[in-house]
């Protein structure tokens, strides 16, 4: 057991993956000497060399596109996209090649690459630095999307993602980079694609992922003070979603609230609601609600608190599902 921040846990996880397999290499902007703008790759180039910790030219399609070639060659590249809002130049490569080459080559190519994207808001940034693009990738067949929410998950999930043979979009909640937590260096807590009950409860199921999990847990604590027992599930895997524990929870509580920073329209949150409505129809005592960012471009960060799902908005949704006549 060790206490560390999520950024450090990712760094340690990457280090261990680099040690375990010489085919693992990192590519991204400013990840070498600087150690990445969030210092997630701090010190790695010094220890593993410039051939494995590759400071790339400033072009995201180039980072992903060349990583595809490295993967074809048998490497396991880990790309870093500096910020969520800068992944779009790489969108073509991700959707047209990363997601499809395994299928197009009838399984001959393994697209064993990980694309790390610091995502989400709550950091008071300027435009393009607070977005939640996970839905685009979750929508694309051939990709998997995961998001750790604790240092322990970060340490293990990055290693699990690197050893996985499918391409994985690894969404890191950047507002949690500096939160400390216990990391078990010996044993992974659970599988890469397993959801996790972050807090148990009996009245309402709140499902969240990434940066929203902590917000949801805090909302659950506040609800508890009001005599309501809220269960919080950390989805961890955004695609595929791990529905069985979600189904079990909703069958228990009969009420569902889904929380995410990304706007609800055609989103991961909407998929959670659709699927759980399908699977838990006879258990739902109230319509499932989504608490998400509003359908606007990500706002100037001085008003992001009002834009994002916060404790008040989650509690309001809990009130609404609890107050629904049934």
């Amino acid at each position: 057991m060790a206490q560390m921040t999520m950024a450090k846990a990712l760094n340690e996880g990457l280090r261990r993956a680099l040690e375990d397999n010489p085919k693992v290499l990192l590519m991204g902007e400013d990840i070498g000497k600087l150690g990445g703008v969030f210092r997630v790759t701090d010190g790695l180039q010094k220890d593993f060399g410039e051939d494995r910790i590759i400071d790339s030219p400033l072009a995201e399609s180039g980072i992903v596109g060349t990583s595809v070639g490295l993967a074809i060659r048998g490497y396991r590249p880990v790309c870093e996209i500096q910020f969520d809002g800068f992944v779009y130049p790489a969108f073509d490569q991700i959707v047209s090649q990363v997601a499809k080459l395994h299928s197009r080559s009838h399984g001959v190519y393994k697209m064993a690459l990980v694309i790390r994207i610091p995502f989400g808001g709550q950091i008071g940034a300027i435009e393009h630095h607070s977005e939640s693009p996970e839905g685009y990738f979750a929508h694309t067949a051939g990709l998997r999307v995961v998001s750790p929410t604790t240092p322990n998950d970060a340490y293990w999930m990055i290693q699990q993602a690197i050893t996985h043979d499918d391409p994985i979009i690894f969404c890191e909640p950047k507002c949690r980079y500096w939160e400390k937590g216990e990391v078990d260096l010996d044993r992974p807590p659970r599988g890469l694609f397993d959801a996790h009950v972050a807090r148990e409860g009996t009245d309402v199921t709140v499902i969240a992922y990434g940066p929203s999990v902590r917000t949801a847990v805090r909302a659950a604590e506040a609800a508890s003070a009001e005599g309501r027992s809220v269960e919080v599930i950390d989805a961890r895997s955004i695609a595929p979603l791990d529905f069985p524990p979600m189904v079990a929870s909703v069958q228990k509580t009969g009420r569902l609230v889904v929380v995410a920073e990304a706007p609800a329209n055609a989103s991961v949150a909407s998929e959670v609601v659709a699927r759980l409505t399908e699977e838990c129809f006879y258990s739902l005592r109230a319509p499932a609600l989504r608490v998400t960012g509003y359908h606007t471009p990500y706002p100037p960060s001085r008003v992001e608190e009002e834009y994002l799902p916060n404790i008040d908005r989650i509690l309001d949704a809990v009130d609404r599902v609890m107050g629904f006549e049934s």
Binding site: Y282, S283, L284, R285, A286, F324, E325, S326
Partner: peptide
């Protein structure tokens, strides 16, 4: 609501034959 429908179904009661007393005629448990 779905759980009430299920409850009615489990008791062999046609939900359509029940007169709701809830808000706007909602059929309650």
């Amino acid at each position: 609501t779905p759980p009430v429908r299920l409850y009615a179904k489990q008791h062999g009661i046609d939900i359509e034959s029940i007169q709701g007393t809830g808000r706007d005629g909602l059929i309650t448990r």
